[in-house]
């Protein structure tokens, strides 16, 4: 039938037409710049003069750049908040999954920081961390504790930003946990109760295995997000904190690129960041393959 092949051709043309915008967008604004970042990382690119190939020099310099090490350390240090937030979110979700009245209201309240703009939240917490008049120290004062000037002290600036990040992200993880918990059939818990299992046993045998995939999802997305932390640092400690103790990897990259115009050097950092995220995503992919096999 000639008409069928003609129809098929038409469908194909329209299909490609509909797919063209996202594919062109991806090539133009993601793939091409990514390849350019890789290329640029091997040059002395400064945005003005000629780009000279300098081999691995940028990477070698990063290896001995103390500020870069500091920024990397700070970035990973602030990720300590991830497991803390995870535990709190799971506890909250379990509390909310008991059919207690007011669940919807709690869900909304805990979610408000998530939808709030990070810039406004950072401004609010910068003021809340003020040593003399901030909300945090006023609260601690009720218990007779004299709080530090959080953001001006190199020992407290990272924990301070971490606490804020936990506060902001808690509602999101809680919501994901709650969705996972609600998909667990009630009959499992009833059976466990009939068997005389205590709360801890029920948690270990039923709840934890059921929320494990979500936990993994949250950990991976938080690591990916955490490795790109920027806005909080830029607003709350615009110079990178006392002795550069709150500067993150992306903050350092941003300073080097748009402050000093060391574009080649920042590109090397960009490549390392992309590589790190690529590996984390790959791990998640492998894990998902394995765990979806378990469920069947």
């Amino acid at each position: 039938m000639p008409t069928k092949s003609k129809l098929y051709r038409k469908e194909m043309i329209y299909g490609y037409l509909f797919l063209a915008p996202p594919v062109i967008g991806m090539l133009l604004f993601t793939m091409y710049p990514m390849l350019y970042s890789i290329y640029g990382s091997f040059t002395d690119w400064d945005g003005l003069g000629q780009m000279n190939f300098i081999g691995l020099d940028n990477y070698k310099d990063l290896f001995t750049d103390e500020l870069f090490h500091k920024a990397m350390f700070n970035t990973f240090f602030m990720m300590i908040g991830i497991p803390i937030g995870l535990v709190l979110a799971l506890l909250l979700a379990m509390g909310l999954n008991r059919g207690i009245p007011g669940t919807t209201a709690f869900r909304v309240i805990y979610y408000v920081p998530v939808i709030s703009s990070l810039a406004a939240i950072s401004i609010l917490w910068q003021w809340a961390y003020n040593g003399d008049y901030g909300l945090v120290n006023q609260f601690l004062d009720l218990f007779g504790i004299k709080g530090p000037n959080w953001l001006a002290n190199k020992h407290t600036v990272k924990p301070a930003i971490m606490i804020m990040a936990i506060w902001k992200g808690l509602g999101y993880s809680m919501l994901l946990y709650l969705a996972a918990l609600q998909s667990v059939s009630r009959s499992y818990y009833e059976a466990a109760e009939l068997d005389g299992a205590n709360g801890f046993q029920t948690f270990r045998a039923i709840t934890w295995p059921m929320v494990k995939p979500v936990t993994f999802f949250i950990v991976v997305t938080s690591i990916i997000g955490g490795s790109q932390i920027f806005t909080e640092i830029n607003i709350m400690t615009s110079t990178g904190g006392p002795e550069y103790s709150s500067a993150s990897a992306v903050f350092y990259m941003w300073q080097k690129a748009f402050g000093n115009f060391q574009l080649g050097y920042s590109s090397a950092m960009a490549v390392l960041l992309a590589l790190f995220i690529f590996i984390v995503t790959l791990v998640q992919f492998k894990f998902n393959e394995k765990s979806s096999g378990d469920l069947d």
């Binding site: 993601t30 710049p33 490795s227 790109q228 960041l273 690529f278």
Partner: peptide
């Protein structure tokens, strides 16, 4: 392409 983070492409995009 989702795997590629914005900071990794922002410099060439800017130029």
């Amino acid at each position: 392409s989702i795997m590629i983070p914005y900071p990794a492409v922002m410099i060439p995009q800017f130029i």
